[in-house]
Design a protein around this nucleic acid. Structure first.
Lengths: 142, 142
DNA sequence: ATTGACCTGTGTGCAGCTCACAGGTTTAGA
DNA sequence: TCTAAACCTGTGAGCTGCACACAGGTCAAT
């Protein structure tokens, strides 16, 4: 199997497969004379694992560690449990960040609805933004 | 004012100020003989605007456009309204992505609680991940 | 033999900073 | 006056997780 074929089989881009190969997560045989890389069934299941882990929020670095453990013959489970804890906290945090940002953006759009456009002055670049923030800061709705 | 002083005044890192300067959002005077950059009150209020816009979800590229409009003497408001619409959609999407990821991660952690650690086999790298995904795919809780 | 369509690996780019580093500046002390 | 240490500076590179550009290789049809 060459890069394209493997990529399509698992529904990712060839560039993604190349990337995982480049950083050493996939180790295809150096192929024939033309330098093309050749992926076998072993690489395919490795890629499938990578994608599964990715969908669970593990970073590429995490996945590297997990695979390294397994390649070493040890159980990767403790590592997996430890890492997902960390990533879960981060995801929770980002989720909250997005929630708050979304709320703030909605509030801005809403308040701007009743305001007209204005030209910039020497002191202001865009009064919509500058005045909205001032109001926001005051009412700290944490 | 030099970079550090301005940074501390507005509560960001000196590196952040340097970054905005590097990409042309801030244009300090080239300073004295030693090459140090000098920020005046005008730059300070510009940085304050940048941070306000950033907190509303505008990208650095957005902010560049907004400031360019204002520098050109035109009202940046129409641009601002158009851009925040785009960013709001993206934020909404990312919020949903985080929500779904969080849910999946919680489900994984929960189901792994009652499972033991296992060593890798020739076919599996970490059965926790591989088996969880299989179950998940089946029950497509969209 | 030649054209054209498709494929390959490698190098670079992206956002939004953060860090490393070599050197300049300032200040305390002797 | 000299010096040594603490602090500050600008510039260059690095980070994540790919996507894109590009020069060249391959292969089927002419």
């Amino acid at each position: 199997m060459r890069v394209r074929q493997l990529a399509e089989k698992l529904g990712v881009s060839a560039d993604t497969v190349r990337y995982y190969t480049r950083i050493g997560l996939l180790a295809p045989t150096k192929s024939t004379a033309n330098g093309y890389k050749f992926y076998n069934i072993r690489e395919q299941s490795c890629l499938r694992f990578i994608l599964s882990a990715r969908d669970l929020g593990f970073s590429v670095e995490d996945i590297t560690q997990i695979i390294a453990k397994a390649d070493d013959g040890q159980s990767a489970c403790p590592t997996v449990r430890r890492l997902i804890d960390k990533r879960l906290h981060e995801t929770q945090q980002r989720y909250l960040d997005m929630l708050r940002l979304r709320k703030r953006m909605l509030a801005a759009v809403d308040s701007w609805d009743s305001k007209e456009d204005k030209a910039p002055t020497g002191n202001q670049i865009c009064y919509l933004i500058e005045e909205f923030i001032e109001v926001e800061v005051g009412s700290e709705t944490k």
